[in-house]
C-alpha cells in the first residue's frame, strides 16, 4: 500500500510539472476565452433582471457553466495528453513491463487531471468574480444550491465524466471521434440546467450528497473497468 501511494505521488508530481509547463499558453488563453463566453451571455441577463438581488443570484448560478466549461475543456486536453499520448509514445510499455499495475498508473494520471481541473475551475470563477466586481460593481450572490452545484456537483460530475471518458482512451486505439462526441453532450446538458436552476428548489444538502455519490460511483466504475482491461489492449499499436 505504501509503495502504491508513493508511486501515485511520484506520477502526480511529474504529470503536474509536465502539464503546467506544456500548457502554459493554453491555460491563460482558456481563462480569457471562457470569461468572455460567460460575459457574452451576461449581457443578455443584465437586460432580463431588473431586480438586482435576482440578477446577482442568476450571475451566481451562471458560474456553474463556467466551471463545467473549464473542467470539460481542460479535462479533454489532459486525458488526451496523459493517457492517449502515453500509449502512442509507448512509454506505457515501459511502465507496465517494469511492474507498475495499469490501474495505479491510470489512477495517478486521473488524480492529476482532477487536481488540475478543479484548480482551473476555481481560477476561472475567481477571475470572473473579480471581473464582475471591477466592470459592473456587482458582488455575485450564491444560493445554497448554486454554491453546491458550482463548487461541488459540477466539478465532481465533470471530473467523474473524465474518469469514464478515459476508459475509452485506455481501451480504444483511435479515439478522436468518440472523444469529441462524449465531450460535447455534457456542455449542452449543463447549459440547460444552469439557465433554469433559479427555478428549482432542491435542498442543497441533498444535491451535495447526490452529486458526491454519483461522482464517486462514476470513479469507482471506471476503476473496476480499468482493472479489467487486459494489458494487450493497453499496448495496442497506435499510429
Amino acid at each position: 500500500m505504501t509503495d502504491t501511494v508513493r508511486v501515485i505521488q511520484t506520477i502526480i508530481k511529474k504529470e503536474l510539472v509536465d502539464s503546467l509547463r506544456s500548457l502554459k499558453l493554453i491555460l491563460p488563453s482558456g481563462v480569457i476565452c471562457f470569461n468572455f463566453c460567460i460575459y457574452a451571455t451576461e449581457a443578455q441577463i443584465f437586460a432580463l433582471f431588473s431586480d438586482e438581488l435576482l440578477l446577482r443570484r442568476q450571475l451566481g448560478s451562471n458560474l456553474m457553466y463556467l466551471s463545467a466549461m473549464a473542467i470539460l475543456f481542460l479535462g479533454a486536453i489532459l486525458v488526451t495528453r496523459l493517457i492517449y499520448e502515453e500509449k502512442k509514445n509507448k512509454t506505457i510499455h515501459m511502465m507496465l513491463s517494469m511492474g507498475l499495475p495499469p490501474v495505479t498508473l491510470w489512477l495517478a494520471k486521473m488524480l492529476t487531471i482532477a487536481i488540475l481541473c478543479e484548480l482551473y475551475s476555481l481560477i476561472n470563477i475567481g477571475v470572473h468574480l473579480v471581473f464582475l466586481k471591477i466592470a459592473y460593481g456587482y458582488c455575485v450572490l450564491f444560493t445554497g444550491l448554486s454554491a453546491v452545484m458550482t463548487f461541488v456537483m459540477i466539478p465532481v460530475l465533470c471530473i467523474g465524466l473524465q474518469f469514464l471518458l478515459s476508459l475509452a482512451f485506455m481501451f480504444f486505439s483511435k479515439m478522436n471521434l468518440i472523444g469529441t462526441f462524449l465531450q460535447i453532450v455534457p456542455y449542452m446538458a449543463i447549459w440547460n440546467l444552469s439557465a433554469k436552476l433559479i427555478q428549482y428548489t432542491v435542498i442543497p444538502g441533498l444535491a451535495l450528497i447526490l452529486s458526491l455519490g454519483i461522482g464517486v460511483l462514476m470513479i469507482l466504475i471506471a476503476c473496476v473497468l480499468v482493472r479489467n482491461i487486459p494489458k494487450d489492449r493497453l499496448v495496442t499499436r497506435i499510429d
Partner: peptide
C-alpha cells in the same frame, strides 16, 4: 507487480 524495482526493460 511484485517485480516492481526488480526488473528493468529496454525496448
Amino acid at each position: 507487480q511484485k517485480l516492481l524495482g526488480k526488473i528493468s526493460v529496454l525496448f
